[in-house]
Structure formats: C-alpha cells, structure tokens
Amino acid sequence: MPAKVSQKKNPKRNPLGKVFAGNIGALAVGLKYFFDPNRITLLYPHEYIKLNKGYRGFIVLIKEKCISCSSCARICPAAAMRMLSVKVYNEKLKKYMIKKYPVINYNRCIFCGLCVDVCPTEALYHVPYHDIVYENMNDMILSLEDFQKEPENIEFKEGIPVKYYFDERRGLVKTPYMEELEKRNEKEEKNQKVEGEGEKGAS
C-alpha cells in the first residue's frame, strides 16, 4: 500500500464562538495539568537513570581476547581509539614480541559503538552508563590498565537509581529501581561490617 495524499485545511473558526471555546479549552487544559502535574524531570544528582543493558556507554577492553587486528582503531570515526605497541613476552617462542592493543581517548570518543561492533572477538564491550567526571582532560586519555577496568561512577553511590517505564496515560513514568538500591545497601552493610571488624581488630 503506497502512501496517499489527503487534502486538508486549517480548522475554521467563527469569530465569536471559537474565541470563547478556544480560550476556555486552553485554560481548561492548563488547569488540568496544574492540578494533576505530569512530571518527567529527573532530579539528576539525587536520582540517576539505571540504563538498559544495550546502552552504548563507556567502553571496556578484555585484553585476553584482543588479537591486535586494529579493526577498532581503523573504524573509529573520531580517531579516539588508537593502537599502542606493547612488549609482550611470548611463552612459546620464549622472546619478547611487540603486540598492539587499543587505548581510548574520551576527549574524542563519540560513543558510536562501531569499534565494539566490528571487533571480531568481542574483546570490547559497553557499560551502560556515560556520566563520569574526570578531573582534567589528561585523565580522559586512558592507559591500557585503566581501559580494562569498568570506570567508577560517583552518582551510583549517593543517588537513587530510577527507571523510566512507558505508560499510556503519562508517557514516561519515573520509578525507583529497587533491586539496584537493595544491592547497593547490601554492599554498604558488608563494607560497614568489614570496617567495624577492622576497627575492633585495631582496638
């Protein structure tokens, strides 16, 4: 079924009736939302969105899987990923060999995820968050060691994790994501216990 053209016209208004109806309609809609607000705002540092697994956030390298094919660096549209030559000791040949591993510059990264998709061995993956603060621009260029760790997110320690769900009446509904909170509380309790024990030991 191809598209059809439908000829339309601006809705007409007669001078008096529509002026009243229009004003009253506008005011009524305004009042409706005044008394029943439909809020969508995320109070960001106090809350943060727990994003889905497929979200293209920061990128992490699994060094063991890397075969040094340079595909990621070649496909990177912003030249944010480049190959670093590292001397690696080869057990079989019993000598040092130069191997290339990717490193990333988050000053440039645009999170297009092409490197992750093109990697033939799945040595790269995304973590589902992107809101990480670095102290200076030099820190945003990761060393090979940092590139293998999942970056730490400060908001995750204080804010409430929130998920948006689709809703017919309200569009997006913000709901606290309890599972994540519980997980974090458990972790904190454990940490406190460890700390407490440590103190006891010290005393």
């Binding site: 660096a73 030249a79 480049r82 190959m83 670093l84 030559s85 590292v86 001397k87 290339k100 490193v103």
Partner: peptide
C-alpha cells in the same frame, strides 16, 4: 587525518 597507531612506546605514552 590522524594515524591509527601511537608512535611512542608504552612507557612514554603512560
């Protein structure tokens, strides 16, 4: 356009 390789070695890069 930039090259895809880092010219310096590991220690210098770090």
């Amino acid at each position: 356009e930039d090259s895809i390789n880092i010219e310096v070695d590991y220690a210098a890069y770090n």
